[in-house]
C-alpha cells in the first residue's frame, strides 16, 4: 500500500530511494515495453520521487509516461 511505500522511502537515502522506485517501476514498465524497460526506467527516475509515487499508483499515468519516453528515445536515436 501507499503508506508502506512512503514510509519505506522516507527512511532511505536519496540513492536508495531512486533504486527502490526503480525496482518497483521496472516490472510495470517491462510489461509495457519489454525491450526498452531499462532505458525507460532510467529516464523516469530523473523525475521527482513524488511524481514517481503517483505513477506507481496510476497505471494510466504510467502508460502515458512510458509512451512519452519511447517517443523521446526514438527521436534521440533517429
Amino acid at each position: 500500500g501507499r503508506c508502506l511505500i512512503a514510509s519505506t522511502l522516507a527512511s532511505a537515502s536519496p540513492e536508495d530511494q531512486k533504486k527502490m522506485l526503480g525496482e518497483w517501476l521496472f516490472p510495470l514498465i517491462q510489461a509495457l515495453q519489454p525491450t526498452l524497460a531499462s532505458k525507460i526506467t532510467g529516464m523516469l527516475l530523473e523525475m521527482d520521487n513524488s511524481e514517481l509515487l503517483l505513477l506507481l499508483e496510476s497505471p494510466e499515468s504510467l502508460c502515458y509516461k512510458v509512451d512519452e519516453a519511447v517517443a523521446v528515445l526514438e527521436a534521440c536515436q533517429a
Binding site: 540513492e15 533504486k19 516490472p27 532505458k39 525507460i40 532510467g42 530523473e46 528515445l73 534521440c76
Partner: peptide
Amino acid sequence: GSSINWPPEFHPGVPWKGLQNI
C-alpha cells in the same frame, strides 16, 4: 553532444547511479 550515454539504464538488483549524471 554528450547524449551518447543518455539515458542511464536501470537494472533490477544493481545500485542506481543515475543521480551522478545530474
